[in-house]
Design a protein around this nucleic acid. Structure first.
Lengths: 137, 137
DNA sequence: TCTATTGCTCCAGAAGCTATAGGTTTGAGG
DNA sequence: CCTCAAACCTATAGCTTCTGGAGCAATAGA
């Protein structure tokens, strides 16, 4: 049996976050000690590690809930799990694409060398005048 | 004089967002009509366009507040504006790098073809077992 | 037994909006 | 001038995923 602190140390998930996941229904409310403290089994440790890993990959709480539900049914087809992961991959790729455009625009803006005054600063002027941009955003 | 709706249409910033920016101190509380409705001057339109543009580039409200304050003083050196933009560029680059790692990991995970059962689904197993990852994250 | 550490619940805040409820003002057509 | 729909007002709550604090109770080691 692990205390919430044990669980936290072993998974790297902070204590309030564990309680939050319980509230959100990602992990079940565990047994309690006589003094009302949470006591976890090893299976909860694995479940929490799963959640942690999925969060690190940027999956939403809702997606994780779905994936956890799926993992309870090893005999079912796994197309749904695949779909969730693929969709998330697509989202990640979109974010990368968008950020790269921003990177380009910021590179152009930052070309200002910082050695003059605000009045003719490229950073300020570029922000004030959208027409100076190369991409639309 | 523009109503808040005019301002919204011309800048693409939604009405509640304009009021929110006023609350956050990005734009000054404007004059009011006899019936207590907001009435803006052209200068506010330009200021809001600046804000919109900066937000589109992903700058934080705080950074924008600083940049707006700087732009009020055209005679000052612009090193600070340059620093804000450069820092933001660095943040964007970090995000891109991080997302690329996630992309790689998700690509590996998604290699599961979806045509079998949850029990041997690579998506589920990879999430459950961090040691299957190539990068640490 | 004492006490440092850990745990409990409840609540607020962070970021940047968005939405809803319930009411008032405006402006165009008749 | 009157009406009525559209636009506006304030105040408040909600979204997402936690994180931190206050104030108090339980546990574990010396």
């Amino acid at each position: 049996m692990y205390s919430i602190g044990d669980l936290s140390r072993r998974t790297g998930v902070k204590i309030p976050t564990i309680r939050y996941y319980e509230q959100m229904g990602l992990i079940a409310a565990p047994e309690r000690s006589e003094g009302n403290q949470r006591r976890y089994e090893k299976s909860e440790l694995e479940r929490l590690a799963f959640i942690r890993h999925a969060r690190d990959l940027g999956l939403s709480i809702d997606s994780i809930r779905d994936l956890l539900a799926l993992s309870q049914h090893p005999e079912r087809p796994c197309g749904e799990a695949d779909r969730i992961a693929s969709e998330h991959l697509a989202t990640v790729r979109e974010k990368i694409a968008r950020l790269k455009k921003l990177e380009q625009e910021l590179e152009r803006i930052v070309a200002c060398d910082g050695n003059h005054t605000v009045g003719d600063c490229y950073v300020i002027r570029a922000l004030a005048d959208h027409s100076m941009c190369e991409n639309e955003h």
